[in-house]
Amino acid sequence: MSQQYKLRTGETLIEHVLDSMTAVFQASSGITHLVTDPVPAILEVLSDQFVDSDQVAERLQRQFDLQADADVAAVVAARLEELWQLGLVERRTAP
């Protein structure tokens, strides 16, 4: 039973690159998050529909031409759960 994630409906995220990090302003909370790679890329993938961590990992691997690697999937899964706890994304159990 896998978890799926997606940006919150109606959410506005404003991103601004600051050398090594990206500042992300979340309109619904008024909170500024400072994130590192690959979080901006993950947020990009989550913008329109519910996807699970394997799908996100696969998209990132294609986008950045990474080797298929169990590590990538694990990193992505951990980041997704953090993003949910922070309230940046919605989560649901895959139907």
Binding site: S29, G30, W84, Q85
Partner: peptide, 16 residues
């Protein structure tokens, strides 16, 4: 307006 937004956000945090 900010107070309203923060209040709704706190409610959402407890929802999660």
């Amino acid at each position: 307006q900010l107070a309203r937004q923060q209040a709704l956000w706190e409610a959402d945090c407890t929802r999660r």
